[in-house]
């Protein structure tokens, strides 16, 4: 019984249930886990009659896969240095000690003939020295380790010319208590307008920084149905308990490549794979060659500071 009670409150936390809150962006931005919620209620009820439904930790043989390289590489049109992190996949038993990849030869070259070998730091990090990202240039990342060579190529998109951003505090209709009495829950919503350039296919991703840390990232999206038009939409900020009026948040719009887009788009779905409702979980789609995992994100950045509005 205990499991189900815990489970149900978890299932109904604000992120999961119905992002159908009243903001105009009514469609849940990720697949709604409504069914999870429903199953939970159904289960709790049946379980209360079913006597001793249970959850237990079991051992199953998962015949471990051989270790694979994991790449997290970001370069942008902002001044460097840029950092690249290399690690490996582990079996479940090794999860507490993810091995850093040491002694790899990491190179980034661009389409105008510049080439740089990155300097190795601690814990699998590698750093550029002189490289500066320029929109329109094509970048090639080459990693040599354990006798294998991995590669990823991406052109840096041009930054978006016109970006309008706003932040507002509003009643969270999606989470009103049943009777509507008591304190109304509030939420913060960032609304945006992007003037999408028509000549290229564009892929976007928002990152929100608060007090110098990455604090929210909104799912990646593209201009498939809005090419050359204005893309206007909004997204909700989560975990905003520490917000005070007058604080600033920095919202960064990344114009990313198609490879990175596919990675970030599929990261959320497959990530964790904790949801039993997904019948066929899979890895986020990587843009690294030779079965390398992770991403090489070559992006151009447009950012804006926003001030948290009064209550």
């Amino acid at each position: 019984m205990k499991f189900f009670s815990q489970n149900i409150s978890k299932r109904f936390d604000r992120n999961q249930i119905c992002s159908l809150s009243g903001t105009g962006k009514l469609f849940p931005r990720e697949p709604v886990k409504n069914c999870t919620a429903v199953v939970s209620i159904a289960l709790i009820l049946l379980a209360s009659f079913g006597l001793a439904s249970c959850q237990k930790v079991i051992n199953i043989d998962l015949n471990n896969a051989s270790p694979q390289l994991v790449v997290e590489a970001n370069i942008s049109n902002l001044p460097g240095p840029y950092f690249i992190k290399l690690s490996k996949t582990v079996s479940f038993s090794g999860i507490t000690e993810i091995p850093a990849v040491k002694g790899a030869i990491v190179e980034i070259s661009d389409s105008s003939g510049n080439k740089e070998t990155l300097t190795e730091l601690m814990n699998g990090f590698y750093r550029t020295r002189t490289l500066r990202g320029i929109p329109g240039h094509k970048y090639t990342l080459t990693i040599k380790t354990d006798g294998q060579t991995y590669e990823s190529v991406s052109r840096m998109p041009y930054p978006v010319g016109n970006l309008t951003l706003g932040i507002k505090r509003e009643v969270d209709y999606g989470h009103l208590p049943g009777g509507g009495a008591g304190d109304q829950p509030m939420r913060y919503v960032v609304n945006y307008e992007i003037n999408d350039p028509g000549e290229y296919k564009n892929y976007y991703r928002f990152i929100v920084y608060f007090k110098n840390g990455i604090f929210n990232s909104h799912r990646a999206f593209d201009d498939q149905f809005h090419n050359g038009k204005i893309i206007a939409d909004e997204f909700e900020l989560h975990d905003t308990l520490n917000f005070n009026p007058g604080d600033t948040v920095m919202v960064e719009l990344q114009n990313i490549g198609s490879g990175a887009y596919n990675f970030f788009r599929t990261l959320r779905e497959g990530a964790g794979g904790m949801s039993f409702l997904s019948a066929s979980p899979s890895n986020p789609i990587s843009n690294i060659s030779d079965d390398g995992l992770g991403y090489f994100n070559v992006c151009s950045v447009t950012d804006r500071m926003l001030i948290i509005p009064e209550k």
Binding site: I60, L62, N63, N64, A65, Q68, V70, E72, S87, K88, T89, V90, S91, F92, G94, I95, I98, I214, L267, A271, G273, A279, S280, P281, S282, P284, L293, G294
Partner: peptide, 10 residues
């Protein structure tokens, strides 16, 4: 489909 292992992103 069960996972065969894990890795870290961020």
């Amino acid at each position: 489909t069960f996972p065969k292992g894990a890795y870290m992103i961020g």
